[in-house]
Computed example of a mutant assay.
Amino acid sequence: MALITISGYPCSGKTRRAHQIKAALERRLEDPSYAGPQLKVVIVSDDTLNISRDAYKDSRSEKPARGALFTAMQRAMGQDTILIVDAMNYIKGFRYQMYCAAREQRLRVCTVYVVATQDLVKEWNISRTDGKPYVQETLDNLLMRFEEPSSMVRWDSPLITVPWLDEDIPADDIWKAVTEGNVKPPNAGTQAVPKAPTDALRALEATTTAMVAAIMAEQAASGGLGGPVTLSLPDDVKTSVALPARSITLSELQRTKRQFVAVNKKAITLGTTEKGALDWSEGSIAQKFAAYIEENIRP
């Protein structure tokens, strides 16, 4: 349904805002006047994943921490869920990655920027009562590296800013963003590439080898008259191919087979070059190879 990305300095009050947003959305979803789909509001955060504040002290520990957050976010996404990601999300590249994941799932997106001054967050970090303060050196480093969200870029838009002085969140704006905002379809950069089945290489090699043998047998029986012929392959697969009116040598067929296998092997190992046009079944491979032979064997 929607992804709400919380962004802001460490100790700026993001978790309090996330729970305010959750409560406000749930009130509206439970209101008798609400006639939309049944939705749940879920928060994913470092705390829900038991990620320590010490994970942000260096890049070696921070990278797997962000990976765990991203994986949990992907698992929680759904058309029946308004997902709130309560974390610093201070790297614009990471926010873009989250935006791409949301587009792939066809979710609405919204960024809530929790604003507080650096002096305030340092003061609030010292006065934390939950026993989870940041080490001062880590906090200073995070403040220096923070990349502020911008409404000028698509992955931070729509951007809703919540200053530390405000007692409540702009619930109307957030509700409108997650229920009425545009749903952008996946593009080439965000769409998952179709993958070939695990036995595609075996099917490709076995089917093309069987077709070469069947063509040689057909030529031996007909004396190389050529024309349209129907080849019977293993597993009751049949395909038609138009042969030239001459005897095709085994070396010609083997060379053509190697070229065809090389082109399609690359498609299998890299995902696909045809966006699913070849379904990798024996029948489809046979038809493709027959067309390839007709195009590449000289008359």
Rank of each mutant, 00 (worst) to 15 (best):
P228A: 05
L231V: 09
L278G: 05
P234T: 04
V237F: 02
E282S: 04
I248V: 14
T230V: 14
V241D: 07
T249P: 00
V261N: 12
G226I: 05
P228Q: 05
T273Y: 13
F260V: 12
G226N: 15
R255G: 10
V237E: 08
A262M: 13
E252H: 03
G224C: 02
K266C: 10
A221P: 00
V241N: 12
R246A: 05
Q254Y: 00
I285R: 06
E282Q: 06
R258E: 13
D236Q: 13
L278W: 00
L231Y: 04
W280H: 05
Q254G: 01
E252W: 01
S284T: 09
G271D: 11
S281L: 12
G283V: 12
G223F: 08
D235F: 03
E218N: 09
A277M: 14
D235P: 00
L243R: 06
T239I: 06
T269F: 03
L278K: 04
W280S: 04
R258Q: 14
A221G: 07
E218K: 03
P234M: 04
T230R: 11
Q259H: 09
T230I: 11
V237W: 03
E274Y: 01
S284V: 02
L231C: 08
L278T: 07
A245W: 00
L233A: 15
K257I: 03
F260Q: 11
S247V: 10
L233S: 15
K275D: 13
W280G: 03
A245F: 01
D236I: 08
L270F: 04
G224E: 13
S232G: 04
L243T: 08
N264M: 13
Q259N: 10
A220M: 04
S222V: 09
T256K: 08
E274S: 10
E274F: 03
N264R: 14
L233Q: 11
G283Y: 06
V263P: 01
T230Y: 04
P234A: 07
A245P: 01
A242N: 14
S251T: 15
K238Y: 06
S232C: 02
V261Q: 10
T269Y: 03
L231T: 07
K266L: 14
G276K: 01
G226H: 10
E252R: 05
V237Q: 07
T273H: 06
S281Y: 06
L231E: 07
S240P: 00
T239D: 01
V261Y: 03
K266W: 06
R255V: 12
Q219I: 04
Q254H: 02
E274W: 03
L250F: 01
T256R: 12
Q219F: 02
I285C: 08
A242E: 12
L225F: 00
K238S: 11
R258C: 11
L278V: 08
P244K: 03
E282I: 01
I268S: 05
E282N: 04
T230G: 11
S251L: 14
R255W: 07
L225T: 07
L253K: 01
A262W: 04
P228S: 11
S232K: 03
S281D: 10
R258V: 13
A277C: 12
I248F: 00
S284Q: 09
Q254C: 09
S222W: 03
L270I: 09
T269G: 02
P234F: 04
S232L: 02
P244N: 08
N264F: 15
L233N: 15
E218C: 05
